[in-house]
Design a protein around this nucleic acid. Structure first.
Lengths: 256, 256
DNA sequence: GAACAGAGTTCGTATATACGAACGTCAAAC
DNA sequence: GTTTGACGTTCGTATATACGAACTCTGTTC
C-alpha cells in the first residue's frame, strides 16, 4: 500500500530541487494539491530540516538535512568506499577527471568523482543522471547487458540526439556496443557534450553482472584518440581491479 | 499543522541512515510504529527510490534518490558555489585539506571540502555535523556569536570532552573565544581528534552576522604552531574574501 | 517432516489527513 | 489612503492512513 502523503512530500521536495525556491501557491498549482495540504506538508518538511523557509518571502528551498542524508547514502554505497582509492590512483596517473557511476533506473547515476587539478568544479556532478546511449560510462554498461535488456532500454528511452556525434540510429548503436565488448572499453567522442571525450570501462559484481562503470574524461583537444587508447588500458585495469575487489572472478562476459 | 505521516517517513530514513539495513520489524520496534504502518511507509519510500530493498533479506537501505537530492541541495546552497574557487586556491597554497562549514542547529555542518593530495579520503566528511566547542570551524563561529547565544549554546549543548585537549571548562572557553576574536582566527589543537590541528576563520553575511567558517587542517606533526600562524593569514584572507563576495562590507565584529 | 518461530504481508476499522472555503496579511495600484 | 489582488494561514468536514489481528512464507528445530 502506497502512502500518498509521503509521495506528495517527495513530489514537493523534487519540485523544489528542480526549480529552486517555491511558495505554497506555486507548489499546490504545479502538483495539483489543495493549498492547505501543500502548506502543511511544506511546514512539516521545514520542521524536519528537509526544507528551509525564507522568512521574508515565505518561500521554501532545500534544507541542510538533505545534504546530511545524501551523504550518508553515498557513504553507505559500498562501491564508493571501495572504489575511491582506485579512482584517486587513476586520476593521478592520467591527470584527468575520473568518474564512478552505477546503473540506476536505466540511466547512469554519478556516485563519485576525482577532479583533475586542471579544472575548477563549480557544481558537482555527483548525484546527476545521464542516459546510457550517449555517455562513455553508459555505453560501457549497456554493452554488457543482456540483449533483451539493451532492446528494452533503447525502445523505452530512445536514442535522443544531444550533439552531432550522438549515435541515434539503433543499428549503429548495435555495432557500437559490439565494438565495445570486443575492445573492453567504451569511448564517448563528444556524444553528450561538445568538446568532451572520455574512455570508460564496465564494473561487474560477484555474479558477473555489469552494474557500474568508471571513466576518465577531459577536453577533446587534449584527449586525442591516440591518447585515449593509451589511457584505455589504465581505465580497464582500474575497472577490473574494482570488480575483483567486489568478488568478481571471471572475465567480463556480455549478457550475464 | 505537522503531518505525522511525513515525520514518520523521515524517522525511518534517519534510522536506516544511522544503523544501515533494517527490516520492517526492527523499524517498527525502534520507532514505536505498527508493523503494518512501518511496512507501508517503507514500501512507499522504496517506490520513491529513497530506500532500496534487498530482495533476499527483505531489508531496506538508503537509496540513490537521496544521493541525487542531497547533491542538488548542496549545489543550491549559494555559499558552496561561491566559496569553492576560494577553497581550491587555499588548498593549493597550503597543500592541506580545506573545509567549508555552516552554523546549523547549534552545530557545524560540513558543506564542502577540498582534499589535500596527501590524504586518502575514505568516506567524505561533507554532510557530517560536529559540535562548536571542540572544532576550529565551530569555535571560529561561536566566538563571533552574541554572548547570549554563546551562553545558550554552551548551556544546552555542554562542553563534552572528546580528547585530553578539549576545552571543557566554561571559563576557559570564554577566554578562548575572546582570544579568537582578538586574533581573528581559531586554532583547534587536537581538541576533537588526536593528531589533527587546524586553523579556521569566520565568514559573515551581508548583515555582518557570522554564519559559516573555513578551515585548513592537517596532521599535528606537520602543522606546528609556527606553521599554523603563518597559514592563519591565508585562512583569514580567504574567509574575508568570501564574506565580501556575500555582500559583507564591514570589519568582522563580534556579537552582531 | 511436522511443528515452530520469526519474519513480512494483507485486511477491516478508529483516527489523522486532504480538501475547500473563509480569513489574515502585505504590497502594489489607483 | 483606500482599494485591489495575490499570497500565506487557519478551520471545520469527507477521505485516507495507522492500527492490531489475522495471514503467509521461510527456514529451523525436534
Amino acid at each position: 500500500m502506497i502512502v500518498k502523503t509521503v509521495s506528495n512530500a517527495f513530489r514537493i521536495i523534487e519540485e523544489i530541487s528542480r526549480r529552486g525556491e517555491l511558495g505554497v501557491t506555486e507548489i499546490c498549482q504545479t502538483l495539483s494539491l489543495a493549498k492547505s495540504s501543500a502548506h502543511d506538508l511544506a511546514e512539516t518538511l521545514l520542521a524536519e530540516g528537509v526544507l528551509e523557509k525564507n522568512a521574508d518571502t515565505k518561500r521554501y528551498s532545500l534544507g541542510s538535512r538533505l545534504i546530511e542524508l545524501g551523504n550518508r547514502a553515498q557513504n553507505q554505497f559500498d562501491i564508493v568506499r571501495l572504489a575511491h582509492p582506485f579512482l584517486l590512483e587513476l586520476s593521478e596517473k592520467t591527470e584527468e577527471t575520473v568518474h564512478l557511476t552505477v546503473l540506476d533506473n536505466d540511466e547512469v547515476l554519478y556516485l563519485d568523482c576525482v577532479e583533475s587539478r586542471l579544472r575548477f568544479r563549480m557544481t558537482s556532478i555527483i548525484g546527476a543522471r545521464c542516459p546510457l546511449h550517449c555517455t562513455g560510462v553508459g555505453k560501457a554498461i549497456l554493452a554488457y547487458l543482456p540483449e533483451t535488456e539493451q532492446s528494452r532500454i533503447i525502445k523505452e528511452k530512445g536514442l535522443h540526439q544531444y550533439t552531432k556525434n550522438t549515435i541515434h540510429e539503433e543499428s549503429k548503436m548495435r555495432d557500437e556496443l559490439r565494438k565495445i565488448v570486443k575492445q573492453g572499453y567504451a569511448i564517448d567522442n563528444m556524444e553528450h557534450e561538445d568538446f568532451l571525450r572520455c574512455v570508460s570501462a564496465p564494473i561487474f559484481n560477484f555474479e558477473g553482472r555489469v552494474f557500474a562503470s568508471v571513466s576518465v574524461s577531459g577536453l577533446a583537444e587534449r584527449n586525442t584518440f591516440k591518447r585515449l587508447s593509451s589511457i584505455s588500458k589504465l581505465v580497464t585495469e582500474t575497472a577490473d581491479n574494482i570488480s575483483r575487489r567486489l568478488g568478481y572472478t571471471g572475465k567480463p562476459q556480455p549478457g550475464h
